[in-house]
Design a protein around this nucleic acid. Structure first.
Lengths: 144, 144
DNA sequence: CGATAATCAGACAAATCCGTCTGAAATCGG
DNA sequence: CCGATTTCAGACGGATTTGTCTGATTATCG
């Protein structure tokens, strides 16, 4: 597991990156994704429900149903997925766990952590999943 | 809760920083720390046991017993505490959760994440708790 | 020695997160 | 229409982490 994100969030990221490797609008089933990425079937179902409710995915029931990206892949950035699943609180938590830590009353690690995390979140907000999918395909990295 | 560290680890960090504000070798009870920092009494007991076993704290039983730092505060860095409680695995986990991500087979966020975490862990390894304690005292930040 | 107050340690309870199971609803092909 | 396959949704089980309780052990002080 990552340090940073919940397991749900990791699964969501990997799955949406998987979808981004498909042709735009192509439908894919949970079954295919869960078996390719080794994600528990029903757990992924719940995650995709949440992503649908948040407007990142569309779905269709039935024998030839499945999920597809609600927007062109180049318009979805990694940060969108993270916020949809884990929420945006993760950007404002004190790294030492002090409840009263904030900009006006910073803990001793506040400023180091602030620049560190802002840089990282910025890069997550710049990375769209089309580019990510291309990198993965190019490197043969866990390719579909 | 922090993104990064377990609750145990946060409590350990806060408590040891608290101890570092005392005179060197001064003994302090769990009771005092747990009430000042709002940490569950017995939970802190277990955390301090672990820190004792790892050699960061010394302890004495009995009516005037308590805990004190095993080394001068300037020789203990935040990273020591983190590794004692959460272990050193946290430095090598893929941020997107890919099992096969590593230096020779990097995921699309691998390099960004690498610099992010290395910078941050480096600053945690530089910060000794005497300096941290001084900053806290100076700013009146959750002072004892 | 006896009362008190502290750590030590193991069992246990609660909460959270992860994962499973079951059935309903919808869609398609025959 | 019927059967197959898929999403949808809620209940449930399990694992891990967090937190509680109880009693044993040890040291101090009168």
């Amino acid at each position: 597991m990552s340090i940073f994100f919940s397991r749900q969030c990791e699964y969501a990221l990997q799955s949406i990156i998987y979808l981004a490797q498909k042709k735009q609008g192509e439908m894919t089933t949970i079954k295919e994704i869960s078996s390719h990425l080794n994600i528990p079937f029903h757990f992924l179902g719940k995650i995709f429900q949440k992503l649908s409710h948040k407007g990142l995915l569309h779905s269709m029931k039935g024998v030839s149903g499945g999920f597809w990206l609600a927007k062109p892949a180049e318009e979805i950035v990694l940060m969108d997925i993270i916020i949809a699943i884990d929420g945006s609180d993760i950007m404002n938590l004190c790294v030492l766990g002090y409840a009263e830590c904030n900009g006006s009353s910073p803990c001793p690690m506040h400023n180091e952590w602030k620049t560190t995390k802002e840089n990282f979140f910025a890069s997550l907000s710049k990375k769209n999943i089309l580019d990510v999918a291309k990198e993965i395909k190019k490197d043969g990295y866990r390719a579909a």
